[in-house]
Design a binder for these strands. Sequence first.
DNA 1: TAATTTCAAGTATAGCTTTTCGTAAATATT
DNA 2: AATATTTACGAAAAGCTATACTTGAAATTA
Lengths: 343, 343
Amino acid sequence: MEKKTDNTVRLQDVAKKASVGVGTASRVLNNHPNVSEEKRKRVLEVMEEMGYRPNFVARSLKTKSTKTIGLILMDITNPFYADILRGIQDEVTKADYSLILTDLGTKGNHLPKAIETMGDKKLDGIIYIGNQVDDDSAQLFLDTRRPLVFVSTAVILVNKELHDDFFSIEIDNENGAYEGVMHLIHRGYKRIALISGVKGDQNSSVPRMKGYKNALEEKGLHINPQWIHHGEHSFKTGYEGMKGFLSLSKVPDAVFAISDMAAIGAMKAAFELGYRIPEDIGVIGFDGITHSAYTHPTLTTISQPRYEMGTKAIQLMLDQIEGRVQKGRRVLLDYRLVKGGSC
Amino acid sequence: MEKKTDNTVRLQDVAKKASVGVGTASRVLNNHPNVSEEKRKRVLEVMEEMGYRPNFVARSLKTKSTKTIGLILMDITNPFYADILRGIQDEVTKADYSLILTDLGTKGNHLPKAIETMGDKKLDGIIYIGNQVDDDSAQLFLDTRRPLVFVSTAVILVNKELHDDFFSIEIDNENGAYEGVMHLIHRGYKRIALISGVKGDQNSSVPRMKGYKNALEEKGLHINPQWIHHGEHSFKTGYEGMKGFLSLSKVPDAVFAISDMAAIGAMKAAFELGYRIPEDIGVIGFDGITHSAYTHPTLTTISQPRYEMGTKAIQLMLDQIEGRVQKGRRVLLDYRLVKGGSC
DNA sequence: TAATTTCAAGTATAGCTTTTCGTAAATATT
DNA sequence: AATATTTACGAAAAGCTATACTTGAAATTA
């Protein structure tokens, strides 16, 4: 009961030296009221003098709060996610929480393991940013019985029902895409191709493709299946998609890319084949990453409020952790058409 | 001693149901030898049946190991760092550790707080990736008394002495820069400008500028102070640097950028002013981020083994945590000139 | 057979903090 | 002045696991 194996100083060491009970010392530490000014001062002095630092692990065991939020994300390599992370980080820092990050990466399905570990480590909440999650993983999320926030992720189906015990933050993807394609049409483009994401992904691919089709149909333009390319949110996807389009007998005159990464890859491919942008072929992207302002020509894009998505995510998380809200809901943020020189 | 407030199942619940001592249950959990096959099986069954999940926090309190590594990095928005993170993440996942991330961002000095928090939360080790740290923060790092790995960071000075109780992973920045500039010279460029990082930063700015100067001096080329621009590793810095150079009466014919981000920004500025790359002005970058392969023309760059830097960082970290090494050392990895079309 | 070794398995304790509880003292109320 | 209420504070429990220690039985040896 009085072993000092290493030289860490414990609260009871402080208490003893200050001649108070360990309970009192704890109260001082946590700014509880019922402690006399005299003892408070003495304890504080001794803490300073001995260089006492509270043990977070022991505290967590007792309070059941780790002051740590888990963040699972798709691919940190994509600046879109990195920008969201910046918002998350700033807000987390402000609230004195820590962040446990799991970057899923592209190879292998590490999601179930990641969710379970975050539950086991007693994180106070979990944020997920990425593609739609399958039903099994969705169930795992709920099983952790922790506050959840999904960013830029389609609402999940569990047992074929919509759950309302988590938050989600998105933009109106369908209308965003619609507006982007409309912009192309207004600029005079008529043969508009689509570089999409993972087929069937309810997060970005499905709603954005819907917006794309809505716009074309509304204007009576032809939807050519050959002009739709599926892939990831990567340079490579855009590059390959564009290469494919430009090798067809009937070449499109504009491309709507589901992400800026893909748009940049597409531009590269067009340039390589000697096409001029925007004269020969127009390009529009989606996301609004910083990078899109540094291509030549500058990329026109549907910009998402990335930083704000991050800050909002943490705010909603803290609302849940601190019991200010009960039911989850879907939060829609505004997107914005940023006009560049690519179309 | 027998309160069940919520429905979490504890090891002692498992033990009771399996009619064994809690010690035995613990041994089963940790694969200790001295337990009969019969009881092991029974305990395992009960665990499965009750859905038992070990409490990491309680375990950490006892074992003094959190199975969590801290990562402090400069700016996740820079793909160079994001790529390193990918390597770190993969290796961390493999070893069944978690990662607590602190992205310092650009505004405010959050480093001291970040270090202290990671110490307080009893993380098993800390990795730092970024600019040179000041002496005070360096001392804080050492005060945590935890394994340390510094990636792409200049060796730190504490009390004006070189410490050897931490690891660092770098490339030979001076020679890398030297080689890059030499490449420009061999391609026929003679008026070579430099877009550098933070002035005096021993991490990248100082050694790379040294390599830059070495090359110029060796070839008897003029070093023009007006052709040196300081800033950050960002698009903006490169953009502004190049704009500045091209407004001078005596314009350079090539630019060596300290990072690919800056190089891309510089290319953008040159294009805007109607310069052709590589005909009118040559550009070479540093880092080798994926992005550099998708500019037009493709960016020539000194590529750093980013992913490997990450995996190596974790390997060295685990070596320390698991006691396989005592003294720290400096690890140099290989860089590589990747020839693009920008010079 | 008795003594010794070996091993399985149960018990108690440590790890550090917060919180509950009970007591004593101080203050307020009548 | 006597009682009720509030406040200060120490002792101990609780949170959950791992480990050191202990015990008892079985196996080995003399």
